[in-house]
């Protein structure tokens, strides 16, 4: 084996070991890398009620009720729902049927008291007229929950 070959195998082996180590670390960290939980996770993963968490999902259609500066709405992942209350300024993209990530705690009545609300944008980019045409023709494939 020449020195060049030896160095080549050394680099390949090193990269494989490094990749394996990284993969193991990432699987071990698992949920730690998650930016938010879904309402379903909140039910199934036994997250301690006094822990501050971020909950992400869609703002349920027709659930937004404004009461002065306070907003009540429901976050849904289409399998589970979470009643949420927030007081403060909402981002531009906050609207019914759109993605949202809220940070806060669940109170004793099971209502999520959000202290921060971020809008989540999806990967779809299209002009306004195209979106309207799609909605009109019934080809709209948005994740707008119809429930």
């Amino acid at each position: 084996m020449t020195r060049k070959q030896r160095r080549l195998y050394f680099v390949i082996l090193g990269m494989l070991a490094l990749g394996a180590a990284t993969a193991l670390v990432l699987t071990a960290v698992g949920d730690g890398m998650v930016y938010f939980y879904t309402p379903r996770d909140l039910q199934t993963k036994h997250i301690s009620p006094d822990r501050r968490v971020r909950i992400g999902g869609l703002v349920k259609q027709g659930s937004v009720v404004r009461d002065g500066k306070t907003v009540h709405f429901v976050i849904t992942d289409l399998t589970a729902e979470l009643k949420t209350t927030y007081t403060g300024v909402l981002p531009d993209l906050f609207r019914e049927g759109q993605g949202v990530v809220a940070e806060g705690k669940v109170d004793r009545n099971g209502v999520f008291q959000a202290s921060e609300v971020l809008a989540k944008h999806d990967e779809k980019y299209m002009p306004k007229d195209v979106a309207e045409a799609l909605k009109k023709s019934g080809h709209w494939q948005g994740e707008t929950p119809q429930k």
């Binding site: 981002p91 531009d92 993209l93 906050f94 809008a119």
Partner: peptide, 8 residues
Amino acid sequence: PMWGTWWA
């Protein structure tokens, strides 16, 4: 303007 935060 979109998310409501500079950084996450």
